[in-house]
Amino acid sequence: MPRPGYMVSEIYKNLLKKRATILYPFKERELVHLPKGFRGRIIFNRDKCIGCQMCFRVCPAQAIKIIEDERGKRPIFFMYRCIYCGSCAEYCPVKAIELSDIFENIAFNKKDLLVK
């Protein structure tokens, strides 16, 4: 049966509820619940890395480059190309790569988005 203004009780109920919006520039960071296993910014552990280049081979976005440092071959990550698929972490044989829950990967300078 059609009834004009069907939502009237709902809108007044919502008037008394707390707003659904979370203030973004993190005045309310505690309201953001990120689950375990969220795919965010890459964290790289140099001590574990054995230089097998697996991450470089599986990366679909070419966000990983292999360079040489004093301890041999190692990857660096360009977060501005990363698509957060998590392939590198999945295929890393020694779990030297992890995805953290940092999701604000924006910077004025590209150098800030390099993970070394």
């Binding site: 990120l34 689950p35 296993g37 969220f38 795919r39 698509i83 957060y84 698929c85 998590g86 995805l99």
Partner: peptide
């Protein structure tokens, strides 16, 4: 997000 690790692009 809980199951796959991301809100929209599930991978």
């Amino acid at each position: 997000e809980t199951i796959t690790g991301n809100r929209v692009v599930t991978a």
